[in-house]
Amino acid sequence: MILYHLSNGLYLLSYAVRDILWLRLITVIAGATALASMFVKPEPPPVAIAWNLVFLCINLVRIHILIRERRPIPLSADEQHLAKLVFPMLRPRELVRLLRVGAIADHTAEAALVRRGTTLDRLLLVVRGTARVELANKPGVEIGDGAFVGELCFLTGKPAAADVIAATTMRVVEWPTAALRKFLDDEPDLRATMQQVLGRDLAAKLRR
């Protein structure tokens, strides 16, 4: 009888906490106590025990997921650089998920990142290095860390209007367009963040 009351007391406590992880942890302890109270009965009720075990398993799985999600995630030097320059609004885990849709690529100086008139199947973000954007009949401009390459093609689906040549050795993030679009479609918050970042970049270009 004491175990039964203790179990219900713990359930009561679990309803009072705000944090979902604590709620689940206390519920698990309450469930385990309830199970103990059933096992000490002369005739343990098998159906009630079975249901309590199901609840216990679901809560344990959710607790495991919650702890994994809340665990701090270390960022590499490149990721920290991008977090500071381009994505200060993202949590480290969100940034890592976004970056993992693409891949890091290194380019030597004078390598062509984009050729004018070609349809790009990727969006690039400069991690380190400098590139020259060479437009037809317009003075070229240099871009560096934190700048996007191919973002106008990504936004419009149209061919590139400029050559982009690495001026130094470069490290870039390369996202395949289709994979990035699919990822962002499934992640509305990250889609809004990406829109914000690309929009800021585009607004600066429109002001030039």
């Binding site: 106008l152 936004l155 419009t156 689906g157 929009g199 585009l202 270009k205 429109l206």
Partner: peptide
């Protein structure tokens, strides 16, 4: 709203291109 912002970005990027 994300769809509308996408359209705005595409329209403005088209003009820039």
């Amino acid at each position: 709203v994300v769809d509308v912002v996408d359209v705005a970005l595409a329209a403005r990027a088209t003009e820039q291109l």
